[in-house]
Design a protein around this nucleic acid. Structure first.
Lengths: 103, 103
DNA sequence: GCGATCTATGTCATTTCGGACATACACTGC
DNA sequence: GCAGTGTATGTCCGAAATGACATAGATCGC
């Protein structure tokens, strides 16, 4: 939790996301993918000046869910992350860029 | 189902994926996103000379699930699609390209 | 300090998803 | 025509995800 990645404290663990427990290539690829998108969600949300509550309404969810999304809670699906991203006003192109991100 | 998009016969409907029933922008964006990826899954699988059964094993799933993925069954999550994509040997970069696709 | 706003975390009831199995269909070589 | 292979579809049940609520922490202006 120290360097940079404060994200995913509970749940996914940080770092390269593979070293921490038996994740094979495919699994870690997915986890890291989610990581990138989760970051993009918060950025998109803030960029558009929305609170978690605002975003929650836009996507017909709840503030607590949005918080879980952004903290990388393991109960959050990729579907929900992407929905959040779109609801936060991100375009498909931005999604694409986010994907190119940190990896 | 005629022109090109034979995909998603049952379930999501085809075409621009929005016109067919009350989907707002966000919803249709997600559906179309899934569409692109689903196509990518089949391509990746074939490119690597795998049968649905083969891919199923790689991702510890079943042939029927893979079939459902590729036909756009609505019981299939984005998570599963992406897992299939990685299991089929696609890289993150390819995923990114797929995202740029047809839209 | 207090209210207001924003975010994080835990829990729970309901919904949705997923693997497995059965079965059907399509095509191919024999 | 039949066996073999690949794909599609329906169903079931256990597992995971989701929204909602409660509540706590963290800032900030006053």
């Amino acid at each position: 939790m120290r360097k940079g990645n404060r994200l995913l404290a509970a749940g996914w663990k940080a770092g390269s996301a593979r070293d921490f427990l038996g994740l094979n290539d495919q699994e870690s690829a997915l986890v890291e993918l989610k990581l990138s998108l989760v970051t993009a969600v918060r950025e998109a949300r803030r960029k558009h000046g929305l609170s978690q509550t605002d975003l929650a309404q836009r996507m017909r969810s709840s503030q607590s869910r949005v918080a879980k999304i952004e903290t990388g809670d393991k109960s959050v699906s990729l579907d929900l992350i992407v929905r959040a991203l779109f609801a936060a006003g991100a375009t498909r192109r931005e999604l694409q860029r986010a994907l190119a991100g940190t990896a």
